[in-house]
């Protein structure tokens, strides 16, 4: 049974070969191409693309999705996935503004409380997947429903607020670089280091590539998956904190409305991370997020209808993944 040896995930036929350390360079090339085309299109249209405003706009828009997509990449590499991040973003946004109540002295408390909630949710996700052997899709869908139910029962609208000082996270900049972008880059760098230069990182690729082989070679697979889920949930908390600093107050719908669950998976996969596990990199995910942001910016510039945007987004996501699958087949890894 596939389900026995590969707990917590699906393993599409023929996927899952390990070449986890494959470079993200192709994705960055695609990003460069998309960026150049976008620039050209906007300039030809008589607009201005390379303005500080525009670039800042794109960067800030990438932050919310980028933070959680980094975490999603980590669980995907481990052969799992997390559908609960969207509601965790909501829980964080509402929780932070509820705890802080506009009081600067309670900022640290708000951050600590939401990080603790996030770690707890990640722990629950990880334990349900590894301990009860529930498929990650079902497990995180379940915790997501539980969070949505409790959150909607307790809060129905914008609740509390964050102090002005906290909004620095969302609005201030160091020179031309927004603070939030620095946060995103720091998280990406940290995740890159953890994945490529720590034992946990190596184990994670091994577990995602082939859990049974990893287990037989002495990797504590369950512990690795649980830790990956905790890290993923923490990045969702960061997204929630960033969003509430932009919005000043949290509401139960900010996470699901942003579609962070499916979008973060899409961004990671566009960035070259394999849904089947064992292959992926946060640098690729960052490129994936930026590709989506640049395309969004062009849509805005041309005032493309919101529904057409959704449609094209769907085609791009599927197209990108189809291209990767094609490339791998050409390399003869099937």
């Amino acid at each position: 049974m596939i389900a026995d040896t590969m707990p917590g995930r699906l393993r599409p036929l023929g996927l899952g070969r390990d070449s986890g350390t494959a470079s993200s360079a192709p994705v960055w090339l695609v990003f460069g191409g998309v960026f150049a085309v976008a620039w050209l299109l906007v300039e030809l249209n008589g607009g201005q693309f390379m303005t500080v405003d525009n670039l800042q706009n794109m960067a800030v828009r990438s932050v919310a999705l980028g933070l959680v997509a980094v975490g999603q990449t980590i669980v995907l590499i481990g052969g799992s996935l997390d559908l609960s991040v969207a509601y965790l973003v909501s829980v964080t946004a509402v929780g932070a503004s509820f705890v802080m109540q506009g009081d600067p002295d309670r900022m640290v408390l708000g951050v600590v409380v939401t990080l603790a909630i996030g770690a707890l949710i990640g722990l629950v996700n990880g334990l349900v997947i590894t301990g009860l052997r529930v498929n990650a899709f079902i497990a995180t869908l379940g915790t997501s429903l539980v969070m949505s139910g409790v959150l909607n029962a307790l809060f129905t609208n914008f609740t509390g607020s964050v102090p002005r000082q906290f909004q620095a996270l969302g609005y201030n900049a160091l020179g031309p670089v927004p603070v939030a972008v620095i946060l995103l880059l720091a998280v990406v760098a940290l995740a890159w280091y953890v994945l490529r230069h720590t034992r946990f990182g190596y184990h994670l690729y091994a577990v995602g590539g082939n859990a049974e082989v990893a287990r037989l070679s002495g990797v504590r697979t369950d512990r690795t998956v649980v830790l990956a889920h905790v890290l993923c949930s923490l990045t969702a908390v960061l997204t929630g904190l960033f969003l509430v600093s932009r919005l000043r107050s949290g509401a139960p719908w900010v996470g699901p409305d942003g579609g962070y669950d499916l979008e973060s998976i899409a961004a990671a996969v566009v960035g070259g991370t394999a849904l089947a596990g064992g292959r992926g990199a946060v640098a690729g995910t960052l490129a994936g997020v930026l590709i989506l942001a640049v395309i969004d910016q062009v849509f805005n510039e041309f005032e493309v209808n919101a529904f057409l945007k959704t449609l094209i987004r769907g085609v791009i996501i599927v197209g990108a993944v189809a291209l990767y699958a094609l490339r791998r087949r050409d390399e003869g890894s099937f």
Binding site: L10, P12, I265, L275, A276, V318, V321
Partner: peptide, 8 residues
């Protein structure tokens, strides 16, 4: 196209 059905 070998796109995982989740993404497709």
């Amino acid at each position: 196209l070998r796109v995982p059905s989740f993404i497709a």
